[in-house]
Design a protein around this nucleic acid. Structure first.
Lengths: 204, 204, 204, 204
DNA sequence: GCCTAACCGAGACGGTACGTCACGTCTTAGA
DNA sequence: TCTAAGACGTGACGTACCGTCTCGGTTAGGC
């Protein structure tokens, strides 16, 4: 039970950097705790003192990366609620815009390696999966819930629809194509998903 | 390089059995090639001669399991095309029935451990992922394509709909809930997915 | 490369003991590094960290055995130069006595297995052979050189004789009989060697 | 229990060649039975059928090499008893000549690698050692016995001398210097050995 | 402003599994 | 019918990391 007050901030950052760099460079499976420690110029014990596994390290590093990005964004723009889904009144357009942005983000190689690795590890390591979903996935999904509820109020979505399920109609297909490379994804694809989801497959 | 004609069928089966059993008993990460070899009563080299990795072994073992199951089914029933989606004329009912069956199957612990492990490994190992998708995923998805095309002919699905994308509206959400435990799944859930997908979120 | 200061003395001793015991029990060829590690309760890496080969381990173990024996002898006797050849004035008698003692020593099964193994390995592994000769053989031979030089001063050996060559006349035959079992050896044999060497084969 | 009548002569020769070549090229320890079989273009079983170990193969190959050399010599010269020690009446000169020839032979790299390897293996493998000594060593030594007995009859060696021991005075030192590299050897050295042995170390 | 307890880097340790090599046995295709 | 080819179970190799454990040194908090 270490004393967080004495914790070295410099080492913590160095470990995050080393972990992210190694996963990007050589992939998650070949990234080792010894490698992270060596790259960070840190003793192995310093890692074992504060984390339980390399997945743990990477998860925190990735969360930290997100926070930094958020703070950077918060810093320049005056807008405090950066990460909400826009509401122009046109639900289809708003969803398409957000999904297109998501496509761009998923293609950023900087995010791809660690998030794919964490997703994979989360499938097998239940505890990590729980944290991964709670910390990274659900907050994003909640934004869709909010936007869909607004759309319900505006009469653009049927009132009996459960937004938490509804969002999966377009989010999960994109996630699956990304994670499993089942098929390529593009703006056209996400646009189509939104149209299909909103207007259904059956003739109207 | 090795000569497949001289391959020992007994060893191959024993390796399949051992791999599946170990993954089920102690989980994929703690399953080792040495462990599989020992359990199968086989030399390590016999595994390395025919497979590249433990994921490879497990994938083939799982495919073999599927083939055996299929042959068993083919044996008792007279029906040669066992694995098609039924077509009663009622698309919604047919899809709901198939998804309910899928829910049951995904809950079978015998299938859960290896398929979850393979899915996870496929996310990170591109080559394995490709094979996983091609051999296990796509054949199943093709059945939905067929059924949706039939529905289009019957006028129950709009003709401009792309069935390969349409099927993702209900298949991917289920897959994601199963893989990532983002939320529980049930018959009610899959029924809802089918309804949402067929009739859309927007008011009709 | 490793830091000798942090070296575990306990492990080192345990490895020496295990190596000597195994060579004595099952013979050198069937002694393995894994076996030594297991017997010593030590990780294989701890052996590979400090030695290059099992021959290396055994050589050091054997040298250590000699040092211990020497220290034990030094401890009880007051004589610091324990290992010189006695000089009673009678060269023939002195040499015979030493060679008889050597015969006894070579028959000690505790020394036989490792030293025979090291000698054999040294024939084939040049580097090991060099060390074997320098650390084990030459120091002993030097004692003969000293004794023969004293004999030269006393007029018992012709002054033009090279002691380093002369000693081989009785040492090498004994060594060869021991190593290659070309013929049995006994006190009578070594006595004969000394007589032949001192007085020559030709009539006087 | 194989049937020697059906044995393939071509394979036998090919195995000898391969074994000698490999030992010369990569050394005895890195020579393997699989390597010999591959090099000889022969199945492993063909080796295991006729020999017990790689030392066995090498020993026979080496003996065969000697026989070939002998037959070649016998072929050109008319002299049937090629390998006796000459008797010019001058024992010292005869021995010096033979030892000089031996020095030359020991320096021949073609013989060095296999004979050194066999000697080493013979130290540790008792059965092989026995055969090595009986087949290779003793016949040569017997020639010295014969020559020394002749010298005794001629009054050049004291009658009470045991020739089998006497020969070791000059043969063993040379053997040891060669095998163990304890010191270099030269014509001067072997000449010296003969002089010391014949006339003794003590003043006459 | 000093003391001292903690964290720090470094890395040796007992282990486990890796992927490779060679062993000696056994089976098979083809000459 | 014999042989080359080589797959098989076995076991050791030498390496890579695991997670634990010391070791000095440094560093910051409470006295």
């Amino acid at each position: 039970m270490p004393e967080p007050k004495r914790r070295s901030e410099k080492s913590r950052k160095a470990i995050y950097d080393a972990a992210l760099a190694l996963v990007a460079e050589i992939g998650y499976p070949r990234t080792t705790i010894e490698g992270i420690a060596a790259r960070a110029g840190v003793g192995k014990q310093t890692i074992y003192r504060w984390w339980n596994s390399k997945a743990d390290v990477l998860l925190e590093a990735f969360l930290d990366l997100g926070e930094q990005a958020e703070q950077a964004a918060r810093g320049e723009g005056a807008e405090p609620r950066q990460y909400a889904i826009p509401d122009t009144g046109d639900l289809a357009a708003d969803l398409k815009a957000v999904l297109r942005a998501t496509v761009d983000e998923l293609r950023d190689p900087k995010f791809e390696a660690p998030s794919r690795a964490l997703a994979a590890e989360g499938l097998v390591d239940a505890e990590l999966g729980r944290v991964f979903v709670a910390k990274l996935l659900e907050p994003s999904l909640q934004l869709y819930v909010d936007r869909l509820r607004a759309a319900q109020k505006a009469g653009q979505v049927r009132p009996e629809i459960d937004p938490r399920i509804a969002l999966e109609l377009f989010v999960s297909p994109l996630a699956q194509r990304w994670l499993q490379h089942t098929a390529p994804f593009s703006y056209a694809y996400t646009d189509t998903l939104v149209d299909y989801a909103l207007y259904g497959l059956a003739p109207r």
